[in-house]
């Protein structure tokens, strides 16, 4: 049975000054699906991800999410979606250096209004699932890049988002650490039934995906399902 389409972008255009980043890109992401967005540097894959996540507003085109047109949403609605429905994972974990790992993971829940104790209890479970429970009280500056990225995965998934946007999540890690993080991330995302939009130029990382979308010169090309 085919899963329903959760996120659909059509004919996205985005220019940065005279540089064209997207020139008619389109993509569909189904619930629970892991889609790898690949392409050479400067092809527009990160811009596509940012547009899909509502971080960057496209100049033209539409983005539908669960029946809602994201291009017309204001900052408050998009922020609310980031709190409840979307999760993020970047090359550098983008953790708040002042907060402990546990507090970092609990942060999205607390911003959503969850009480501290409940938020931290949920966060602790996620740290355990990602095998970094022992880092709970440590600050991001005190842990390695691979550990920080696993804390980042926990933070991306703690709200049980419907879609996780990951931009080169293993780009700053060595291959061993990268595979380990990616394995944990893919498994945790599948266990939570979260769809994942994964931007990468690494074929080994793309191998975790159900489907690959190639971006070149701001346009997308859907490849056949790999698995």
């Amino acid at each position: 049975m085919t899963s329903p389409v959760l996120l659909r972008a059509e004919d996205l255009h985005k220019d940065y000054g005279r540089t064209t980043a997207l020139a008619g890109a389109s993509i569909e992401v189904s619930a629970g699906e892991l889609v790898a967005v690949m392409g050479p540097s400067g092809s527009g894959k990160s811009t596509l991800l940012h547009c899909l996540a509502g971080i960057v507003r496209p100049d033209r085109g539409s983005i539908g999410y669960g029946g809602e047109e994201l291009t017309g949403c204001g900052d408050a609605r998009l922020s609310a979606l980031r709190r409840s429905d979307f999760g993020f994972l970047f090359q550098f974990a983008q953790l708040v250096p002042e907060l402990s790992c546990l507090e970092n993971v609990a942060l999205p829940l607390r911003l959503g209004g969850r009480r501290r104790r409940a938020a931290e209890a949920a966060a602790a479970q996620w740290l355990e699932r990602l095998e970094v429970a022992d880092l709970a009280r440590q600050r991001p500056g005190e842990i390695s890049g691979g550990q920080a990225q696993r804390v980042g995965v926990a933070r991306a998934l703690v709200t049980r988002p419907k879609v996780v946007f990951a931009d080169e999540p293993t780009g700053a890690l060595d291959s061993l650490n990268g595979e380990r993080v990616m394995g944990l991330f893919a498994r945790a995302a599948r266990d939570s039934s979260a769809a994942v939009v994964l931007v990468t130029h690494d074929a080994r990382v793309a191998a975790y995906a159900d489907r690959e979308v190639i971006v070149r010169d701001g346009r997308t090309r859907d490849l056949a399902a790999t698995k």
Binding site: F88, Q94, L111
Partner: peptide, 19 residues
């Protein structure tokens, strides 16, 4: 600069401009 980076991370976690 540090504060701005911190606030950006919070925005990523879903904090809107008012928050």
């Amino acid at each position: 600069e540090q504060r701005d980076r911190r606030l950006a991370a919070l925005r990523l976690c879903g904090a809107d401009r008012r928050m």
